[in-house]
Amino acid sequence: MSTMKRKHKSFVLRLVSLVVIVAALLTYNLITQNRLDAEAEARAAAEAVTVYDPLAGDVLTEASDASADTSVGAGSWKDGTWEGEATGYGGPIRVSVVVSGGKITSVGVLSHDLEDDAYYSMAEAVIPEVIDAQSTAVDTVSGATFSSNGILGAVDKALEGAVN
């Protein structure tokens, strides 16, 4: 029995370590997800309260100021569909940017033939960020920097044609 144990020791040790690491990460993720959800809920509740509280006059103005800030880009581009191209990881990435009401409403990638699929699908996450921020000054996806910069660069090029 003891020789059995010795023979299998390294395997059992590795297996236990792996199980512990995976369990720790899953637990971490569960706790973090719960915390983030709770935070988002609290934030949403707090916003609802501020907006509908008639007594909090200056908070309300602050809120409207903030919304004015985010719409700085509005109206700064000509409506239409604009195309641009920039170099990603392996080659050119072509995008088409739809501007309506002076705002970026959608970004579509026309071609990304030379990008690595796994990297490209990670980098696609910058598109909603661009639409949210109405700007290409957003963080690139870590690990997929080349493809992210390719998409952002192509959007920049496209918007050059849309400048008022």
């Binding site: 990460l25 971490y28 973090t32 699929d117 796994a118 870590s142």
Partner: peptide, 27 residues
């Protein structure tokens, strides 16, 4: 890509952010 998965997991844990099932993690 696989090693990016390792880097991503520990970057997220360091930031206190959730680990998503990204293509790198899948690989």
């Amino acid at each position: 890509a696989a090693f990016n998965g390792v880097k991503y997991i520990f970057t997220q844990v360091g930031k206190g952010a959730a680990i998503q099932w990204t293509p790198f993690v899948a690989i």
